[in-house]
Design a protein around this nucleic acid. Structure first.
Length: 551
RNA sequence: GCGCCUGUAGCUCAGCUGGAUAGAGCAACGGACUUCUAAUCCGUAGGUCAGAGGUUCGAAUCCUCUCAGGCGUGCCA
C-alpha cells in the first residue's frame, strides 16, 4: 500500500515538473507513514515540507499543487487532505482496503512474504555456545533471536543459512577433558584435588559416570595426557549432542555446524594470517604478532599469535569470517551475547581487512536474561555450575511461552523472564493473549461449520464499521512489518504487531456478533476472520510459536 | 581513565532511521457473560520522554555536556 502511494506521488510530482507548476525538479526520498491519529488519514506524507526549501514556496502551497495532480481519475483515494504545517493526508478508498483481504486468502501461508531481500545470500550464525556445558537460559534467548531473525529474513526474500560455530579448539576443550578425567578418577575412589578453573557442574560427573559404565577403569591405565585427550573428545561429543537435542526440543535447527578445529586442520588459520600479513595489517612486537585494528577505529591493536607461538581466539575468528565470505555470503550476521560487545570493532576491522564493507557484517547483541519467579530473582551462578538451563525453562513453561518471551523485547535491552508469568493462563501473559485470538477464531469456524456457514468474498462491501476497517488495515500491513523487521534485524517487531492485532480482533469480537442473522454480513465477517487467523498463524510461525486451534 | 549500551506512566516496555495532541500491557479504580471460548472486552486515572544546551519549519528520536545504572577494556575463551 505504501509503495502504491509512493508511486503515485512520484508520478504526480513528475507531472508537476512537466507542466511547470513546480520548478525544482527534485524527486526527494518520499516518506509515507501511518499517522498516529485516524483523523490524519490512513497514510500521510511530509513531502511538501521537504520540498519547501528547494521550491522556495510555502509547504501548504506545494501541497495544494501536488494534491490536484494526485486526485486523479480512479477511485484509489477516497479523499486527500492538507493539514497542519503542510502534511498531505491520504484516505484510501474503502473498496481498496476490502480488496486487500483477497490477497491474504490467495497467498495463505505465504502472506507476509516479500522480495525486499532480493535473494541476497545471508548467513545467520547463532548460539555457538562452547561445547563445555549445557545451554543455559541466556543461550536460549540467543537461539530464539537468531532463529526468528533467520525466519524473518527468509520471509523477506533473503537466501538464509543458519550456522552454529563450534569452539572445539583451544584450551577450554582441554579444561573439559581434565574436568571429566578428574571426576572419573574421583568416582573410581581416588582422592583428587578438583581445581577451581575446571567445570564444576554436575553434568561433568554424569559424563564420567557414563565412561565408567562403558569402559570401566581403562583410562586409569593410560598416560594422563592421553586420557585427558580422550576425555575431552568424548566429553565434547556428549555435550554437543545434548546441545543439539536441547535446540531441537526448542524448535531450532541449524543448517550447518562449523567446527573451529577444521580451520586449523585445513590450514586456513595460517592462510588467513599470511593473507593479513601481505596486506600489511600485521606486525610483530614483544614477541607477539599483532593485528593493526586501530587502522579501522579500534581502541588498541589485538594479538593474533601469542609470544608462545599459540594463536588467539581472534586468529580463529579472522579465518572463520574470511571463510564465511569466501563461501559467497553477501551479508554475515553474528548473534552474540552482549557481554562480547567489546569485540565488535575488532571483527569489523577484520571485515575491512578482507576488503569488504564493514556493514557486510551485522552483529546482533543479545542482552542478559534476568530470571524471575513471581517477581523475585532466581539465583544463578555460572561459576559454581548452578545455572538454570534452557531445558529446565522449556520443560517448565513450554516452548511457545519461552520463545515468545525471549522475543518480546528488543534484543539489546535486558529481559525480565518471569517463570510464573510465562505459565499463567490469563491476560497478564501475552503469549496466551495472541494464541487465544487464533483459537477463538477457529472455534467460531467450528460453530459456523455446524450451522452450514462459510466465509465468502462475494459481498465484502458489507464490511465498513470502524472495527472492521481497522482490523482490515492492520492485516494488510503485515508484510511491511515483516520486511521492516528483517531489514533492521529486529525480530521483536513481530510479537509487538501480533499483540496489537490480537487486541484488535478481541475488541472486534466483543462488539460484533460474527454468526448473525444477515447471511451476507456473516460470510463477509467470516472472510475477515479467516484472514485474521491466517496472519496470526503466519506471524506466530515466524517466531517458532504454535498457533493452536483450541485452548 | 577510556569505550559501548541503557535512562519514556507506579512496574515491564514500544515509538516505524526528524513529524501533527508521546503509546501498549500489567498493577489501581468502575463496569460488561440467558448470545460464536470472560484465557476476552469497555471506561477512568496515570508523563518535566534523566537533566542542560545546540542543530531546524518541527526533536523522545540527531550533536555536545552533566548525572544515574549496566557492560567491556588479557599475549583468556
Amino acid at each position: 500500500m505504501k509503495n502504491e502511494i509512493r508511486a503515485r506521488v512520484v508520478k504526480s510530482l513528475e507531472r508537476c515538473y512537466a507542466n511547470c507548476s513546480l520548478s525544482s525538479g527534485r524527486i526527494p526520498e518520499i516518506v509515507i507513514e501511518v499517522p498516529n491519529h485516524a483523523d490524519h488519514g490512513d497514510y500521510a506524507s511530509n513531502i511538501a515540507m521537504a520540498l519547501a526549501r528547494a521550491e522556495k514556496k510555502p509547504p501548504k502551497k506545494i501541497a495544494e499543487i501536488l494534491v490536484q495532480e494526485l486526485a486523479g481519475s480512479d477511485r484509489f483515494f477516497e479523499r486527500i487532505e492538507i493539514a497542519g504545517p503542510g502534511f498531505i493526508n491520504f484516505f484510501i478508498n474503502k473498496d481498496v482496503w476490502r480488496e486487500s483481504l483477497r490477497k491474504i486468502v490467495d497467498s495463505g501461508d505465504d502472506f507476509g512474504k516479500s522480495t525486499v531481500g532480493k535473494g541476497t545470500r545471508i548467513q545467520v550464525e547463532f548460539v555457538s555456545a562452547n561445547p563445555t556445558g549445557p545451554l543455559h537460559i541466556g543461550h536460549g534467548r540467543g537461539a530464539a533471536t537468531g532463529d526468528a531473525i533467520a525466519s524473518i529474513l527468509t520471509a523477506a526474500g533473503f537466501d538464509v543459512v543458519r550456522e552454529y560455530y563450534i569452539n572445539d579448539a583451544g584450551n577450554q576443550m582441554d579444561t573439559l577433558g581434565r574436568s571429566v578425567y578428574l571426576r572419573y578418577r574421583e568416582l573410581l575412589g581416588q582422592t583428587v584435588e578438583f581445581p577451581e578453573n575446571c567445570y564444576q557442574g554436575n553434568y561433568i560427573r554424569d559424563i564420567a559416570r557414563d565412561l565408567i559404565t562403558k569402559f570401566g577403569d581403562r583410562y586409569l591405565e593410560m598416560p594422563e595426557d592421553e586420557a585427558i585427550r580422550q576425555c575431552s573428545k568424548i566429553g565434547g561429543d556428549v555435550i554437543l549432542k545434548g546441545i543439539k537435542q536441547d535446540l531441537a526440543d526448542f524448535g531450532v535447527v541449524h543448517d550447518t555446524w562449523f567446527s573451529e578445529q577444521t580451520l586449523f586442520d585445513s590450514g586456513k588459520v595460517a592462510d588467513s594470517i599470511s593473507y593479513m600479513r601481505e596486506k600489511g595489517l600485521l606486525y610483530e612486537n614483544e614477541g607477539a604478532l599483532w593485528f593493526r585494528t586501530t587502522d579501522f577505529g579500534d581502541d588498541k591493536d589485538r594479538v593474533v599469535v601469542r609470544g608462545n607461538g599459540v594463536t588467539t581466539y581472534f586468529a580463529s575468528d579472522i579465518a572463520y569470517h574470511r571463510e564465511k565470505f569466501e563461501q559467497g555470503f553477501d551479508i554475515v550476521v553474528d548473534v552474540w551475547g552482549a557481554d562480547h560487545h567489546g569485540y565488535v570493532p575488532r571483527l569489523k576491522s577484520v571485515v575491512q581487512g578482507l576488503g569488504r564493507n564493514p556493514d557486510d557484517l551485522k552483529i546482533v547483541l543479545v542482552q542478559l536474561v534476568a530470571l524471575l519467579r513471581d517477581g523475585a530473582p532466581v539465583a544463578m551462578s555460572t561459576r559454581s555450575g548452578e545455572f538454570v538451563t534452557l531445558k529446565e525453562v522449556v520443560d517448565e513453561v513450554g516452548r511457545d511461552a519461552a520463545r515468545f518471551f525471549f522475543l518480546m523485547r528488543r534484543s539489546d535491552s535486558q529481559l525480565d523472564f518471569d517463570l510464573e508469568l510465562a505459565k499463567r493462563q490469563n491476560s497478564e501473559n501475552p503469549v496466551y493473549y495472541v494464541q487465544y485470538a487464533h483459537a477463538r477464531i477457529c472455534s467460531i469456524f467450528e460453530s459456523a461449520c455446524e450451522k452450514g456457514l462459510s466465509p465468502s468474498d462475494s459481498s465484502l462491501a458489507c464490511l465498513g464499521t470502524p472495527d472492521e476497517m481497522s482490523l482490515i488495515k492492520m492485516l494488510s500491513v503485515f508484510p511491511e512489518i515483516v520486511a521492516g523487521s528483517a531489514l533492521c534485524f529486529e525480530p521483536h517487531r513481530v510479537p509487538y504487531y501480533l499483540q496489537e492485532l490480537a487486541g484488535q480482533f478481541h475488541s472486534f469480537y466483543n462488539r460484533n456478533r460474527v454468526l448473525g442473522e444477515d447471511d451476507e454480513l456473516t460470510s463477509s465477517r467470516l472472510y475477515l476472520l479467516k484472514c485474521t487467523a491466517q496472519v496470526l498463524k503466519n506471524g506466530l510461525l515466524l517466531l517458532g510459536v504454535s498457533a493452536p486451534d483450541r485452548m
